[in-house]
Design a protein around this nucleic acid. Structure first.
Lengths: 132, 132
DNA sequence: ATGGATTGCGGGTATATGCCCGCGTAAGGC
DNA sequence: GCCTTACGCGGGCATATACCCGCAATCCAT
C-alpha cells in the first residue's frame, strides 16, 4: 500500500516542471507547451499537421487545435500543401522572434536545474524517461 | 540545439505512461487520473476538497471538477463538513469496488514495468522524479 | 478511367489542469 | 457582540490532450 505508481509520480513531476517552465518562459507570452511546439515547427517548417503530430507524438487533432491558438496569437501561419488535403504550418516573423527571445530564458531554466541536480543526473534522467 | 528540455521529455514520458495505465485500468471504467484520485480519497475519506487538493498537489478547482465527474459515475459521494463552507468527498460502495477490482490491473502494470526495466531502475526513477 | 481504400482535416465530445472572481461562512481582534 | 479578515467553494475562462465521425482529396488496382 501507499506505493504510488510511476504514472502518478510522473504526472506529478510533469505538472511541477510545467509550472516551472511556464513561469520561466512567460515573459515572451507563451507557455512551455506552445514554446516547445514552436521549436519543433521551426526545425521543419513548413510542415503538415499530421507530420508534425508524428514528430512530437501528439494526436493530429491536438496539433490542429494548439496551432490554431498560436495562429490567433500571430506566431504561426497556416497554409495549404500541394496535396489539397494538407494544412501546413510555419512560424511568422513574430514567431521566430518569440523563439529567439525565449531561448535565453529556456537556457536559464535548464541551467538552474543542472546546477541544482547536477548535469549527470539530468542526463541520466533524460535517458531514463526516454526509455519509458 | 536539438537538446530537448527535461520538461518536454517529462511531458512526453508522462503522456506515454498515462496512455499505458489508462489502457490497463480501463476495464474497471475509469482512467488512471481518476483511479489515482480515488486511491487518495480512500486513504483519508471523508475529506474536504481543499485538503484533498493539498495532499495530491492539485488545484482545488481541479479537484472539485474531477470529483464531480466521479460523482456522476456514482463512485464518490459529496457531502458537507461541520464547517458549512466545506464540501467533503467519500467513496461509495461502487467506488470501493472499483479500487478493489482495479488493484490487480494496477499491480500488473507496475510489474510489467518492473520486469522490463528492473526494480532498481524504477526505484531510482521514482526518487529522481520526486526530487524535481 | 473508375470505384474502393487510404489519407488529411475539422469539429464534436470528454477529461485534466490552472487561475481568477465573487459569494457565503468562519474566526479573531477590540 | 460587531467588523474585518481569512477561508472554502462554485463557476467562468483558457489551454492541453485524446478519440471518433464525417467530408474531401488522393491513390491504386482492375
Amino acid at each position: 500500500m501507499s506505493v504510488p505508481c510511476i504514472c502518478t509520480t510522473l504526472r506529478s513531476a510533469s505538472r511541477r516542471m510545467i509550472a516551472f517552465y511556464d513561469e520561466t518562459i512567460a515573459p515572451v507570452g507563451v507557455n512551455i507547451a506552445q514554446f516547445s511546439l514552436m521549436r519543433s515547427i521551426a526545425r521543419v517548417e513548413p510542415v503538415t499537421l499530421t507530420a508534425l503530430g508524428r514528430r512530437v507524438e501528439l494526436d493530429r487533432s491536438t496539433i490542429g487545435r494548439n496551432v490554431r491558438v498560436l495562429e490567433k496569437m500571430g506566431l504561426v501561419e497556416l497554409g495549404r500543401g500541394e496535396d489539397q488535403r494538407e494544412a501546413t504550418v510555419a512560424l511568422t516573423e513574430a514567431g521566430h522572434k518569440v523563439l529567439e527571445d525565449g531561448a535565453p530564458l529556456w537556457d536559464g531554466a535548464q541551467k538552474a536545474l543542472d546546477d541544482r541536480l547536477g548535469v549527470e543526473f539530468m542526463r541520466q534522467l533524460h535517458v531514463a524517461l526516454d526509455s519509458l
